[in-house]
Computed example of a mutant assay.
Amino acid sequence: MLEAFVLRARRMEAHSLAADWDALVTLAAAPYSVTVHDDGEATFRQDFPAEEVVESAAARVRPLLLETDACSYLKALAGVGYFCRSLPDETTWVKEARTEWRARTGSTTTRQSGYQVMIGNADTGQVAGLDDQTLAMAWIYGDVVHHDIERLTETDPFGLSERFRAAVPLVAWMMISAIELLNYVRALQSAGVLVLQPELFDQEVVLTSTSWEHTGRAYSAPLGTPAPADALAPLGEGWAPVASDIVVQLDVAGNDVGDTGQCQ
């Protein structure tokens, strides 16, 4: 389980939101400004990254929330706790991290932070109120990784904007927690407390380039010609090398979609 967490956390560490650590910490605190005007009214303002950026971060973080998932944050903590069971300081750290994670991500009435959004219609007398954690989870599970009708219906009076506003600091906080645990695992690995596969800390977890180029030999065959049985099997009858000195533009179905020209 720790191995799965390391790979997932490294993927979060590579996200653009984590490129500036101080900015990520600030984002998790959800700062806002208040401007009081001469007429007594006040303007409250928060500036967050584009929704698409936070959405991609939420997709990377979301598996950590599921205790049944292999890379679950709480499973990773349990693994660290097991290997550090004879180390008092590490055991204390694990317990505190577990308590904080559950308080921040779980449904609980004992939260000591956060805020409540209350709305009301003076004409109809209708009122509604929800906490930021409920709104945030509705954005994650209703607007992003699933389409949870129940969560969306519950938060519909508040709209997408309030759901997103609540989710941003939570997503940022979960990223911070995951990366901090990842660094803790790295330290334990270096100290010999953990003996995970070394390649977990180096293998590719995100694409640094989305251009694909591969060198090989090109063959073609009439439509319906059987493909080789496997990658090492010889080509069967009907397959012939593609003529040299040409460039062919193909789509995923193998259809020619471009002009043929000389290779440069």
Rank of each mutant, 00 (worst) to 15 (best):
K75E: 08
A70L: 13
P88L: 07
I140C: 02
G114N: 04
F83D: 06
I149N: 13
V117F: 01
A138C: 05
V80N: 03
T110Q: 09
D123H: 03
R151M: 12
T92N: 05
Q116C: 06
C84Q: 06
Y82V: 10
Y82K: 12
G142M: 12
D132K: 08
T91N: 08
K75D: 05
A103G: 00
E96S: 09
Y141P: 02
Q112F: 07
Y115M: 07
R98T: 13
C71V: 08
Q126C: 00
A70E: 15
P88D: 02
G81H: 06
I140R: 04
D89R: 12
G106L: 09
H146S: 11
Y115W: 14
T108M: 07
A103D: 02
V144A: 13
L77M: 09
E150S: 15
A138Q: 07
E150H: 14
T109D: 04
H147C: 09
V145N: 01
Q133T: 15
A138H: 10
V117M: 00
L87Q: 10
C71M: 08
C71F: 08
L152Y: 08
D69T: 09
A78M: 01
L152K: 15
Y82R: 14
E90H: 12
Y115I: 04
G81S: 05
E150G: 06
V144Q: 11
E67P: 01
A136M: 02
L77A: 06
L135V: 06
L130F: 00
G81T: 05
T110C: 01
W93Q: 03
V117P: 00
A78T: 05
F83L: 10
Y73P: 06
T109C: 03
T68S: 15
W101C: 04
G79H: 10
W93L: 07
T110I: 11
Y73L: 13
M118S: 12
F83Q: 07
A128N: 01
T91M: 13
T134Q: 04
W93V: 05
M118P: 00
V117C: 00
L152D: 06
L152Q: 13
A103E: 03
R111E: 01
D148N: 15
Y82P: 04
A97Q: 14
Q116E: 11
G106M: 09
S72W: 13
R102Q: 02
D69M: 09
D131H: 02
A122K: 14
R98Y: 03
H147S: 11
G79I: 11
S113D: 07
L130R: 10
L152F: 06
S113P: 00
R102D: 01
T92D: 08
A97I: 05
Y73M: 13
L135W: 08
V80H: 07
A138L: 11
S72F: 13
T68W: 15
E154Q: 15
R104G: 01
R102C: 00
Y73V: 09
I140V: 15
T110H: 14
D148P: 02
G81K: 06
E154S: 07
Y141E: 14
G81D: 04
K95F: 06
G129H: 10
L87G: 03
Q133I: 15
S86M: 08
Q126I: 01
T92A: 09
K95I: 08
D89H: 08
P88H: 03
E67Y: 14
K75F: 02
